[in-house]
Design a protein around this nucleic acid. Structure first.
Lengths: 214, 214
DNA sequence: ATTTGTATCAAACAAACGTTTAAATGTCAA
DNA sequence: TTGACATTTAAACGTTTGTTTGATACAAAT
């Protein structure tokens, strides 16, 4: 395995990720990927075994590490605050997912790849759920727990997190609709507006103002 | 065009809808559809022209009418209430989309087909947006407007509706994750719990308690 | 009974698909 | 420079794809 190999392998991974995100697994041909990556058709099978394994490797080598970066950004954003609150958690979540460490293209690809797996889970979903989703939800639950009303069980907490999550995901993958309905371009200013919306909408939804606990 | 024809045509539409929803456009072959519909391979091209036009016809003849039924259910649910409020609107929305007039299979197919178009809009999206999304959003905006704070512009109102919409959509198409995170089966009791969650989460998010208007 | 138009059918089409092969080229240590 | 291994290449493999064809079956009307 020389340097040249890694370069080709990485080019394939990059182009495959972009194409799978944009068009979905079945709409993308191996020829399309290798042409975009400027390498021979057989390279996919040589480096990854077959198309399915390449798809899985896109998640292992690209999607999961990026999701980890978002999660780290979320944690650091929270840590940078002097006091943690339910509102700060919502703010951190929205900032991490709508702005955060990823470029705009990366964010869009990330959302598209995940949403495709949510609609129609494949082998990659197990990876996605085990390595990212479950740990992140556990982390969020641990952080939010002290700020929730005493009567709220684990299920209620989980549903609150899912509610916030739904907005964050939706505003990312349904950009076309969001832009169309609001009549605004999906630019930096609009993203700030969306973050404001998510935080504001989540704030009271999370039970703030009703909370009986500390 | 005889009766037998319509029956075959409808069988194709039914099977095509189920398969497109479950596996996506590119993962479904014409042979798969015609086999499931127990008719000849050439039937698709005879009745619909080609595969793409069949896909579009699924939206025209199946998806849009069902969406209209959901919308009607939403309106009737609201009308049955003696007093309309922001909370009643959230309740009606959640009821219409999570229970409502559709069977569970229909609801799942509806969500999957729409979400696929949200990720990756095709020709069908224009139909979906023009015939259903836009009118429904306008209707919701008109109903909700009086209950919103005076300072809230049209954009803020649109974002509030989108926020509610995101939960309703997400809880429908990401059933696998929702079930996995909460550890509950997606049965009738759980749907009631989800409706409760959406209504509760939306309630204050909509500005109730903060509203300055009537 | 014959005509007319519609619907179904088996068969075939070229094109594109994922994957495999074996030869050619490149890389680097001995 | 030689040898061993890693990578790239063009070509071909057998399937499957969407679509078309022309013959056949069926229905209702003349």
């Amino acid at each position: 395995m020389s340097k040249k190999d890694q370069i080709t392998k990485e080019r394939i991974l990059n182009e495959a990720e972009a194409l799978f995100a944009k068009n979905g697994y079945d709409a993308v041909s191996v020829r399309e990927i290798t042409t975009a990556a400027r390498c021979n058709l057989a390279a996919v099978n040589y480096h990854f075994g077959n198309k399915q394994k390449l798809y899985l490797e896109v998640f292992r080598a690209r999607w999961v590490p990026r999701a980890r970066r978002v999660q780290e950004y979320f944690m650091e954003f929270l840590a940078s605050r002097d006091t943690v609150s339910a509102s700060a958690v919502a703010q951190a979540l929205a900032e991490a997912f709508l702005k955060g460490p990823l470029s705009d293209d990366e964010r869009q690809r990330q959302s598209q790849l995940m949403t495709r797996e949510l609609i129609q889970p494949t082998e990659a979903f197990e990876l996605l759920a085990g390595e990212v989703l479950r740990p992140f939800f556990k982390e969020m639950a641990d952080i939010l727990r002290p700020f929730m009303p005493e009567g709220l069980g684990n299920e209620g907490l989980a549903l609150n997190i899912l509610s916030m999550f739904s907005m964050v995901i939706y505003f990312n993958f349904a950009r076309v609709v969001v832009s169309r309905i609001t009549g605004r371009d999906y630019d930096a200013a609009f993203k700030d507006r969306l973050i404001e919306q998510i935080v504001g909408f989540s704030l009271n939804g999370l039970g703030k103002g009703k909370k009986k606990g500390a």
